[in-house]
């Protein structure tokens, strides 16, 4: 459709690079153990996503992608990470370490999942544009890695970050598809904000009651099998 996005063109290479950067940062989220670093990586991923959206907006010549980029930059790149840092310091857990699975197994799983995503997307979208295909493969990998990092973590805070990183993958897919309406991104962004608020309330209640952010304490509330 857009001649700028042909294989080998500069615009294509840069879009590809930015998508790949988001994916690499997802791997970073997967193995990083320190809470503050995880928040920093998430912020960085959101900023890269904002750049990717800006670049797509430029290439596709669609103004609403700039709005998406702005939302990604302000809300997810700055506001949410700052709020999360605030929580971490207020709860005094900035030095805590959180990993349910070792670094090597989680990385191996991550690579396997990313490979699977590429195997799914590339053969199934032969009719589509090259960039769309690879962009979708990258985005699906990011979503799957976000889910993976949710299940390899024990702390509620890191699970929330995994959840928001999944959402970054969705936005990455959305900006790569020409003609995606803005309303989707806005609603998704609002959804994340809401989820963030809810989870924020959540943390404080957990903190009040159990003096920990470890969700395994919630299992007692969920009831037991009779």
């Amino acid at each position: 459709m857009t001649p700028h996005l042909a294989y080998g063109a500069f615009s294509y290479d840069l879009a590809h690079l930015l998508g790949a950067a988001v994916l690499v940062l997802s791997f970073g989220l997967l193995y990083q153990r320190r809470l503050t670093s995880i928040i920093a990586i998430y912020a960085l991923q959101s900023v890269v996503l904002a750049i990717a959206a800006t670049w797509q907006g430029w290439v596709q010549d669609s103004a609403h992608l700039y709005v998406t980029a702005l939302i990604a930059l302000c809300a997810k790149g700055v506001a949410i990470p700052l709020a999360l840092r605030n929580i971490v310091f207020r709860l005094r857990i900035e030095r805590s370490v959180d990993a349910a699975l070792g670094v090597f197994p989680s990385m191996a799983l991550g690579v396997a999942v990313a490979t699977l995503s590429i195997l799914v997307v590339l053969p199934n979208t032969i009719e589509s544009e090259t960039l769309t295909r690879e962009d979708l493969a990258l985005a699906l990998s990011v979503v799957m890695l976000g889910l993976l990092s949710m299940i390899t973590r024990r702390s509620a805070l890191t699970q929330v970050i995994g959840f928001m990183s999944m959402e970054n993958g969705l936005i990455l897919a959305a900006v790569g598809l020409p003609g995606m309406p803005l309303i989707v991104e806005l609603s998704v962004a609002v959804l994340v904000m809401l989820a963030f608020v809810v989870f924020g309330v959540f943390f404080f209640r957990i903190r009040d009651q159990f003096d920990s952010l470890d969700v395994s304490h919630l299992d007692r509330v969920g009831g037991t099998h009779k």
């Binding site: 699977l116 995503s117 195997l119 799957m144 889910l147 395994s216 099998h225």
Partner: peptide, 30 residues
Amino acid sequence: DHLQFLTIRRTLSVIFGVVVLFLLAVVLLE
């Protein structure tokens, strides 16, 4: 009934496993 009383992480793991199985099925059917 056991599924109803899984921990949050196990519930997420079940979702993850189902998604991976679905993707594997797509790949194999391809």
